[in-house]
């Protein structure tokens, strides 16, 4: 039998970022991945910068590169990513242990899903993340003065 030619329609990274009629959990998923990658990038930079000390280069001393406003803002972004990733991670641990998704139900139209069951937990975690961001932002601003 002749092989049928097919077109690869896998979305790739566009599947994370591309447009669609999505729900809030999908955006939480994307932000969780992006913040995770951001924290990983920060960790790698951190290793490089601290290892430069072996060559006598101290980038973090008073008046050094890392005291520029751009890097201060970058530090705040790392803090924001950490706060979101940690709190959303707590939600995911609870959900993935089946503790916040409810019990199986008879699917009767209009269908209800576990997304609605865990939504209050998501909202609570986002409120906590917002409080942490506000407190962290105030702290960063007061240190910058």
């Amino acid at each position: 039998m002749a092989e049928i030619k097919r077109h690869d329609n896998r979305l790739g990274l566009w599947g994370w970022l591309g447009g669609g009629r999505w729900g809030i959990e999908r955006y939480a998923y994307i932000l969780h991945r992006l913040t995770g990658l951001g924290i990983l990038l920060y960790f790698l930079m951190h290793v490089v910068v601290t290892s430069l000390r072996a060559r006598g280069i101290y980038l973090w001393v008073e008046g050094g590169v890392f005291h520029q406003p751009m890097f201060k803002f970058g530090e705040f972004l790392v803090f924001a990513a950490f706060a979101y990733h940690a709190l959303n991670g707590v939600r995911l641990v609870l959900v993935e242990l089946g503790l916040a998704v409810g019990k199986p139900i008879e699917p009767v139209y209009p269908y209800k899903t576990s997304l609605g069951v865990q939504r209050p937990l998501l909202i609570a975690m986002m409120i906590l993340a917002a409080i942490l961001l506000a407190a962290g932002g105030y702290n960063f601003l007061s240190l910058a003065k």
């Binding site: 999505w22 729900g23 999908r26 994307i30 995911l92 993935e96 699917p107 009767v108 899903t113 997304l115």
Partner: peptide, 14 residues
């Protein structure tokens, strides 16, 4: 848990 599978399922399978 992006949840899209449950959101689009036409039979409420979740």
């Amino acid at each position: 848990y992006a949840g899209e599978c449950s959101r689009v399922c036409p039979k409420g399978v979740d």
